[in-house]
Design a protein around this nucleic acid. Structure first.
Length: 496
RNA sequence: GGUCCCUUCGUCUAGUGGUUAGGACACAGGAUUUUCAUUCCUGCAACAGGGGUUCAAUUCCCCUAGGGACUACCA
């Protein structure tokens, strides 16, 4: 077993890329990189009825966003192409003919109607389901007659009877099936397209795949695949079946229960490196206490032996926590590139602003450490661009008192003669003012924060003021003074 | 129904034939801080159940229960 490591991720373009699929891709990628092998992308589009035109684009985009660039595949030519199954039909037909010739397969002329009737009967009598092999022993004359009449047919694999089919799963160990529970699966459909089983086995062999890491819904199909390899006289790859990812209620992950696709997470403001790290830890752990690991560390530490066979629930709270860690250390400039388009869209910025604007970078510096997601950063950034339209109600009731009105008036006059608006100078100004008035600095700070931002939380006040600038700060304090005067006057009127 | 897979705190997980069963998220309390967030400390909380094997089982074996997958001319 010293073949070069070649693994593949093989999605079908029937929709968006699910995080479960992304995690399979990720494990393949990690495994390949760890062993210095090749990571291949193959598109399994053999079901024409379920093909979704935009799916391919989204799959490529999702993989690339996560940093899972494939070494061979569509848009990455290699020696084993084409990598899209619908472009390989002649290959599958040729191989089906080989099986036909060697007596491992046969033509089946049964109609879909007959098959569904058969299934219904089997269900009623509680028999094991499966094709009854009616066409398995058609005489050559009968077959020729049907063929000549142009009867549609499929090609089925002859499952040998009385065999024990065993394989060594890289994660679960030995798994055994009796061949008697397997039915004669279809290899080539009547439309000439191969089924998954056929295309998958042929391609994995032809593409020299060494390890098949795929979702565990394929466990039950694996004995069929093993038998197919045997019929072709090929050596089977190593199989390892990855557990599924569940939603918090234990069911399948779906859009309805929040996010399901990679792009959903992107749109929810998650960083690709955070999702990468988090997904790696769903069903895998390095064996020590590390949790936040870079791509390079993950590649170095990854091993199939440490992959758990157990399905795991995606805990979005923990993803959010981890994302916050990555937000804090993300380069502000790169964050600016994500955030800038949204700011412009919201009319906060004129279109000529660029992501290297020092003022914008200052804003991001102030916010990124206290934002768990990009969207949260954006949502909490409005007061840098617009004067507050209202004040956080609960905080206003508590903070905008008659006392604070006097304080703000005092602050305003002190600030209006203050030309150096550095946060250090502002801080000393506030401390001195508080001391002179014999009050705690909080009595000055809290009303200013609310006046200037409209909310009771956010970056350090003095940095905030520095970034906002003198003119804006004074204007907003003035507005707050008006607001408080009005409301206190109203309260007095109501009371008296 | 049949076949197969899975089972350590609420969640992600580490771990071993002998451990006070470890860490993280979440939650609760506290410290620091101008607010929020961060950070730090403390607390809460798990080996599904029953049989074996063994001097000793969370760990090995069997059964039960619960969950899941497959049982298509879908992948």
């Amino acid at each position: 077993m010293n073949k070069p490591v070649r693994v593949r991720f093989a999605p079908s373009p029937t929709g968006y890329l699910h995080v479960g699929g992304a995690r399979s891709a990720l494990f393949n990628y990690l495994f390949a990189r760890h062993h210095g092998g090749t990571f291949i992308l193959r598109i399994e589009d053999t079901d024409r009825s379920r093909f979704v035109a935009d799916a391919l684009k989204e799959i490529y985009e999702s993989l690339r966003w996560l940093g899972l660039q494939w070494d061979e595949g569509p848009e990455a030519p290699g020696e084993y192409g084409p990598y899209i199954q619908s472009q390989r039909l002649d290959i599958y037909r040729k191989h089906a003919q080989i099986l036909l010739d060697s007596g491992h397969a046969y033509r089946c002329f049964c109609t879909p109607e007959r098959l569904s009737q058969l299934r219904a009967e089997q269900e009623k009598t509680k028999q094991n389901a499966g094709y009854d092999r009616k066409c398995r022993n058609l005489s050559p004359e009968e077959e020729k007659k049907l063929l000549d009449a142009g009867t549609p047919y499929v090609i089925r694999f002859k499952i040998p009877s009385g065999r024990t089919v065993a394989f060594e799963d890289g994660i679960r160990g030995k798994i055994e099936y009796s061949s008697d529970v397997l039915d004669d699966l279809v290899l080539i459909k009547s439309d000439g397209y191969p089924t998954y089983h056929m295309a998958n086995v042929v391609d994995d062999h032809l593409m020299a795949i060494s390890h098949v890491l795929r979702g565990d819904e394929w466990i039950a199909s694996t004995p069929r695949h093993v038998l197919l390899y045997e019929a072709f006289g090929w050596e089977a790859p190593v199989f390892a079946h990855l557990p599924v990812i569940l939603s918090p209620d234990g069911g399948k992950l779906s859009k309805r229960k929040g996010a399901a696709s990679v792009m959903d997470y992107k749109n929810a403001g998650y960083l690709p490196e955070a999702l990468f790290n988090f997904l790696a830890f769903l069903g895998w752990a390095p064996g020590d206490d590390r949790e936040k690991m870079s791509r390079e560390e993950l590649i170095k530490a990854f091993s199939l032996e440490q992959v758990s066979p157990k399905a795991s629930v995606l805990d979005e709270k923990k993803l959010e926590w981890m994302n916050g860690l990555y937000m804090a250390e993300r380069d502000s400039r790169s964050l600016a590139e994500e955030v800038l388009p949204v700011w412009k869209e919201r009319g906060y910025l004129s279109s000529e602003k660029t992501s290297d604007d020092p003022w914008l970078l200052q804003i991001i510096d102030l916010l990124k450490g206290r934002s768990k997601r990009i969207t949260e950063l954006i949502d909490n950034s409005s007061y840098f661009f617009k004067d507050p339209e209202s004040y956080e109600e609960k905080a206003a009731r508590k903070t905008f008192t008659p006392d604070s009105l006097q304080n703000l008036i005092q602050i305003k006059s002190a600030l209006s003669v203050q030309d150096n608006f550095s946060h250090e100078k502002l801080e000393t100004l506030y401390r001195d003012l508080a001391e002179k008035s014999g009050i705690s600095s909080g009595k000055l700070i809290h009303p200013t924060r609310l006046a200037v931002s409209g909310v009771s939380f956010g970056p350090g006040l003095f940095e905030l003021m520095q970034t906002l600038g003198k003119e804006t700060v004074l204007r907003r304090i003035e507005r707050a003074i008006e607001f408080i005067s009005k409301t206190t006057a109203q309260v007095e009127k109501e009371n008296g």
